[in-house]
Each structure stands twice: as structure tokens, then as C-alpha cells.
Amino acid sequence: MKRLMTRENAIRWAPLLVLIGLMILFTAINPAFLSQRNFARIAIAAAPALMVAIGVTFIIVMGSIDLSMEGTVGLTAVLFCFVFLATGGTLAAGAWVAVPVILLAGALIGLVNGLVHVKLRIPSFMASLAIGFVGTGAAVLITGGDIVKIDDDTFRALLTWRIAGFPLMVYVVIVMALIAWFIQSHTTLGRNFYAVGGGEELAHASGLNVRRVRILGFVLAGVFYAVAGILQVAKLGQAESVSGANFMFISITSVVVGGVALWGGIGGIWNTVVGVLIVNVINNGMVVIGLPDYLQDGMLGLLVIVAVVLSTDRRSISFVK
């Protein structure tokens, strides 16, 4: 019993307790929070964000960071619309081809990201930030600043077709989260992410090809960003260069709030799921209890700082940049 309050246990369970506490708090202030309709609303808002957050989780577990998500999501969303329209404009007419094509495009963007970071030896936060700018720029270039619309009832079923009150995209996200969990805990690649994050030099010394693992991590993240891009189109029925706006801040906050340490090696997919739910419950709850929505970015800012401070073992580091 003495070991119950260890650091590991606190990191594992504290986010879940915070989530439950928040839900009780918001319900107490306004009982309308605790309704199936509202939960569906939270789930829809959280779905693309969760895909982005899961993607970046792999990177953060390695001790790196990826800031390219806004560009990647925007570009894949725009590309998806174009491929979708070019191949028929409806799923029935063969536009389903767009899905694998865009997943591949996401992987490709991730590959470029990883190659720039690893081959040119540029710190990942700056390499990915630059790639993100290039992605947004490419999306602006392709669209000329316009909005691209998709009007296909079968594809929009992701949002409109509901099972047990939740739209289809929520189940897609659950399946993707399970796949991510499988990769994390049952594949060599998943284990290798932790090896790199836990101690890069040790991993290297034991014969691991660290650079390959890093690049593959970015490729994997790119695929998940592409899924987010597709879901974003399904949610809004349209795409533009700013379709990925705000995902950077929200996803990194979510991952860190869920208990994945920025230093790498600690936490995983389930932490991220809880973190995304915390952030979205707060965003939704603030509206439900009548707080203005402009407080949200400031709130996220405070949240991410508190989360990093709480997850940092202050005795083990001497300085940060």
C-alpha cells in the first residue's frame, strides 16, 4: 500500500481523475452537460483532434516534437477534396480511391518531414514547423485561397449516420485508436519508439537504427494527420488551406495534459485519448456553463504549462532551451 502514490501511478491515473472531476464539476453547474446529445457534440469535436494528437504522440514518445500538423492536415484535406472530385465526386462512382491516395500523401509528407529532420540534422521542432509552413503554403497554392466543397451524401454519412447516437466518424476514430494502440504495444516499431525516447544513445549502442525509427515515426504521424484531414472534410463538407488551423496548439496540449512526458519514453496512446477528452470537455464545458469562447486559447495555454510542470521531474534536468 505504501507504493500506491508513486510517480508512475500518479502519471497514469491523475489525468483520468481530472477528466472525471471536470465532468462532475460541469454537470453540477449545468446538468445539460450530462446528456447524450452533448456527449455526441464533444465526440465530433474531438474526433479529428484525436487523430492529430495520436499522430504526434508517437513523435513525443521518441522525445522529438512535430509542429507540422496544421500544414499537413490543411494540405491533405484540400488534396482529398481535389482527388475526390476528380475521381467521380461520390463514393459510389469510385471516389473512395481518394482515401488510400490521401493516406499515402500523408505518409509522404511525414517522410519528407522525417528526412529533413534526420538527414539534415535539424531539431525536429524547427524542421517540422518549416514543413508545416510549406504545407499550408502548398494548400494555398493549390486552392488559390478558395474553398473546395464536397457534396456526397454517402461520404457525409461519416457525420450524418448515427449508431447509438454517435456519428460514424466516432467509430472510425475508435478503430484508428485501437490500431495505434496495437502499433504501440505489439509491434517492434512501437517498442522502438520507447527505446529511442527512453535513451537514444543506449538504443543506438544496442544496435537499433535510431534514424530509421525516427523517420518511420514521422511517416506514421503523417498517416494519422491525413486521417484527421479526411475527417475534417467529412465534418465540414469542405476544405481550405486553413482547415488545419489550431490543431497544433490543441493536439500538443492534449498529449501533454494526458500525461505523455515531453522528454520522451513515458505515456502512450491511452494518455492521449484521455488528454484529448480533457481538452474537449473543458472547451465544451466552458460554453455550456456560459463562459465566452475567446477564453479557450488562454485556457489551453495555462493548461499546457501546468501539465508540463507537473510531469517534469525537476531533479533530473539542469536547464531547458
Binding site: 509542429l67 521542432f125 515531453l262 499546457v304 504549462i305 510542470v309 517534469t312 534536468i317 531547458v320
Partner: peptide
């Protein structure tokens, strides 16, 4: 510097 949060965050 005091809370050890990396500057980009």
C-alpha cells in the same frame, strides 16, 4: 527557466 518548460511550448 524556473518551471523548466521548453521555450517553444
Amino acid at each position: 527557466t524556473r518551471l523548466f518548460v521548453p521555450s517553444f511550448i
